[in-house]
């Protein structure tokens, strides 16, 4: 029946490029999830996560986010405070508890490798959500291997296996492939959503915008 209403119908794959430290990615992912919940064919939607690194030049040594934005990016300190208040308020409206004062800003490459490790174990969605919460709410270090392995265990993955993957550099090629594909697709900012390799949605759009995109993909693919 849904096919009659929406057209041809079929499976929808949403490929999401995002970074664990991107405030709008966590929001965008939440908005997409709400749209899928409301979409009459939500069961036909598969979400896959791809790596995109903000500030890839960062090391694994934590830096203070406010200091980074002030000293390296040249933002006035009060403007940063205003931006953070605005982002925190927008996140709260979606039920997300942003604690940017606690954020441990580091290179996110290892967190991305863990996301791919989780994908291989069928738990990528849970892993990505745990990583977002780790950075934005819990103030955990997403470059610390012990913390990452603990989070992997929390979502049902083998802790030792995760630790081994992190130590060995596994899945770095998968991260690199995602970054390359992002460049090929011309993605310059995240979150970025691609539906069925055909339609794209850029940014943390509204639930209605995501619903419209899902309907478009459903009708035409």
């Amino acid at each position: 029946m849904g096919g009659e209403v929406f057209g041809r119908g079929g499976a929808i794959t949403v490929d999401v490029w995002s970074d664990v430290m991107c405030p709008f990615c966590y929001m965008g992912d939440t908005l997409l999830a709400q749209a899928v919940e409301r979409f009459p064919h939500g069961d036909a939607v598969t979400v896959r996560y791809h790596s995109f690194q903000l500030m890839p030049e960062l090391s694994k040594e934590p830096v203070d986010l406010v200091d980074l934005l002030v000293e390296k990016r040249g933002f006035p300190r009060d403007q940063v405070a205003g931006m953070h208040a605005n982002v925190t308020e927008r996140a709260a409206a979606l039920g997300l508890d942003y604690r940017l004062d606690r954020a441990v800003t580091v290179n996110s490459r290892d967190a991305h490798r863990l996301s791919h490790f989780a994908a291989a174990g069928g738990r990528q969605n849970e892993m990505v959500h745990r990583l977002f919460r780790a950075y934005f709410t819990d103030g955990l270090n997403i470059a610390d291997h012990a913390s990452l392995a603990d989070m992997a265990a929390e979502v049902g993955l083998d802790r030792d296996g995760a630790m081994e993957a992190l130590k060995s550099g596994a899945f770095d090629d998968a991260v690199e492939a995602d970054l390359r594909q992002a460049r090929e697709l011309g993605i310059s900012g995240v979150p970025f959503f691609v539906l069925n390799d055909k339609y794209a949605v850029s940014g943390a759009q509204s639930v209605d915008a995501f619903l419209k995109a899902l309907n478009t993909a459903w009708k035409t693919d």
């Binding site: 430290m21 990615c25 903000l54 934005l69 900012g189 979150p191 339609y199 949605v201 940014g203």
Partner: peptide, 23 residues
């Protein structure tokens, strides 16, 4: 060549962060 993506622009101001970390 892959077909170019069709950007579905909702005409709304949406949050985006770029490579430099600017959101």
């Amino acid at each position: 060549e892959p077909a170019p993506l069709l950007i579905l622009d909702a005409g709304e101001a949406a949050g985006v962060c770029d490579l430099d970390g600017e959101c």
